[in-house]
Design a protein around this nucleic acid. Structure first.
Length: 206
DNA sequence: GTCAGGATTATG
DNA sequence: ATAATCCTGACC
């Protein structure tokens, strides 16, 4: 059973922490893929790194939506990242999913990762060397997991409580959580809003 | 209307 | 360490 609104109503930092161990699932036309969430980051309203820091805009609108609204945005021209809106309607906050430990559909994930990379390389008229992706490489990083799970910008504004992309309750328990600073940002670097499962081999970066 | 730059990734 | 890329948001 997917997690419901009640779960997403907790404060954004709690949500980021408590999403660890839960399972992100996509029941798509090509099949089912799933993975345990092992790394997240929170973006809060009074946080300079947050897309919604200044004001509500076309891009960040889903962050101001009801809790559980999916926010997919493009980055560096060619990649996408997925967030879950949090904090309540009218409050521009969200949790970024940064890494999964794949549990279902690993072959499909690998196919999609390679296909995605081929599209990108082909755009430059280059070829993409054949390779085998290890399970640890499938969903390591926010844009990688978006490819592996076939998450698209179509899903922007969808509600994760009621969509083919959803989250199931925690299957991991009794693990240690590391709370530290976020990755890839230039402002708000000192804020400890990143959470990951200690010792897990699938996180994007130490 | 213009323009700088990014919550990344793969490659050298 | 660095390139690649397109769309958004800031500013004039």
């Amino acid at each position: 059973m997917p997690l419901t609104t009640e779960f997403y109503q907790q404060p954004s930092l709690d949500l980021a922490r408590n999403l660890l161990g839960c399972v992100l699932v996509h029941n798509g036309p090509e099949g089912r893929t799933a993975g345990i969430i092992v790394e997240t980051e929170a973006y809060l309203k009074d946080d300079p790194a947050c897309h919604a820091y200044t004001r509500k805009t076309v891009r960040n609108a889903p962050m101001f939506g009801p809790v559980g609204m999916i926010y997919v945005y493009q980055i560096y021209g060619q990649y996408y990242c997925v967030n879950i809106s949090s904090g309540g309607e009218g409050i521009g906050e969200a949790v970024l999913i940064r890494a999964l430990e794949p549990t279902e559909g690993l072959d499909l994930m690998a196919e999609r990762r390679i296909a995605a990379q081929q599209r990108i390389q082909q755009f430059f008229g280059k070829t993409y060397a054949d390779r085998v992706l290890k399970p640890t490489q499938l969903c390591k990083g926010p844009a990688s997991l978006v490819h592996a799970m076939a998450i698209t910008k179509e899903m922007n504004f969808w509600m994760i409580q009621d969509s083919p992309l959803f989250i199931e309750p925690a299957v991991l328990h009794d693990f240690d959580v590391v709370q530290t600073t976020r990755i890839g940002i230039k402002v708000g670097v000192e804020l400890p809003y990143r959470f990951y499962v200690k010792g897990n081999a699938f996180i994007s970066k130490k």
